[in-house]
Design a protein around this nucleic acid. Structure first.
Lengths: 209, 209
DNA sequence: CACAGCCTACCAAGCATTTGCTTGGTATGG
DNA sequence: CCATACCAAGCAAATGCTTGGTAGGCTGTG
């Protein structure tokens, strides 16, 4: 029923412009109000059209968020993979991973926010299984970096790697809730400040045995 | 959720009032699925009653979450105030504040989760204005502690206090997403690990000029 | 160069379901 | 006999999505 009314040629071609515009509008609203809490009428209003007209461009509300998230995840993990495969030492890799993450918040805030806020809910649908995979993959990236750091003596030997991973992940990604491009700090500054605290702590005299 | 088998707290525990039971059920669901995404029928099903019957106990869905959050916030800030007013040095106060927070996650997980996930949305309603107040108050607690630390020379002088506050707040409270009572770590262990990283970093050799 | 045909983007109207909540009635223990 | 706790039925609004139609630009052909 759906394929009949939707011109097949318009899927990959068509007006990429309008389609991309609508996706950007939807992403912003999903990030602001949450996926479930954003109605197709909200999106249509923001785009200046009627809700029914959205279905000329997309199959469903789900397919919109699907396209938004999958595209973003693809790009992000390409960067992580590059860092993992690089020749940098563990400390530099960690720094780069943190920077890349804050950069993603800067450049793809809505996508990060949607992933943070709605992934748990979306993952219950088969269609979004890849989100769980990506999550596991992300964990693997960080844990690998941390273990490499411990092994090479760059990081403390008594570190609980899993727990540390969670702390880093939480701090970095939840920053999407308060970080605003053009605000008091650049994303690079925020990343540097966090790396400094993460590596050396906030204590004035950090004499570690 | 098989409402037929054993509705949550269906067997009246006698001592606890039915009202409190229903609030606990609602809190768990709000935390799991989000406030807006939880229907009154969800709550009623979990309680083994019909949705309309909830309105014998509560005015509205909003008043349920209101009662859940306000009660919790009251208790939490009493603890913060006690720490602020104590004679401990800045470092000890910070440690205590972190511990109290993880303790809240342990003992009032649903309440913390609701506050984390839905406060932004709820705060747009006049009724929940106190949530914004409490948020500002919390910020004040942490910033005061950090500034005291810098002033007394316990913490690094070049610390960006506001940024540090955000990092701490994010890491501590978002832990509610993964921390599970009875899991691999106690809340005290998690708090200690975090305090250690926060103060001294994860680096093996902290060279702080 | 006119014009039929087609395509993109949208409108207008509405349908089925879900949702928060209401109203009037009922069973049961004290 | 009365308060507590609940049921039965349903309403109005909101929500995701469908259907049939239209305006305007572009294209190829005679």
């Amino acid at each position: 029923m759906s394929a009949a009314s939707t011109p097949e040629g318009g899927v990959s071609t068509g007006s990429t412009t309008r389609r991309a515009e609508l996706l950007a509008i939807a992403a912003r609203l999903f990030a602001e109000k949450g996926f479930k809490n954003t109605t197709v009428r909200d999106i249509a209003d923001a785009a200046g059209i009627l809700s029914g007209s959205l279905y000329h461009h997309f199959d469903s509300k789900e397919s919109m968020v699907d396209e938004i998230l999958s595209t973003f995840q693809e790009a992000l993990f390409a960067q992580y993979d590059e860092i993992l495969a690089s020749d940098d030492d563990a400390r530099t890799k960690l720094e780069r991973a943190v920077r890349v993450s804050f950069e993603a918040i800067e450049q793809h805030g809505p996508e990060v926010a949607i992933f943070q806020n709605d992934a748990d809910h979306l993952v219950t649908f088969e269609r979004f299984g890849y989100l769980a995979d990506r999550n596991a993959q992300s964990r693997q990236v960080w844990v690998t970096l941390l273990e490499e750091g411990v092994r090479t003596g760059v990081l403390r030997a008594d570190l609980d790697v899993t727990l540390t991973y969670r702390f880093i992940r939480d701090t970095v990604w939840v920053a999407v809730r308060w970080y605003r491009p053009g605000g008091r700090h650049t994303h690079t500054e925020v990343a540097d400040q966090y790396v400094r605290i993460l590596l050396d702590g906030i204590s004035a005299s950090s004499v570690v045995e």
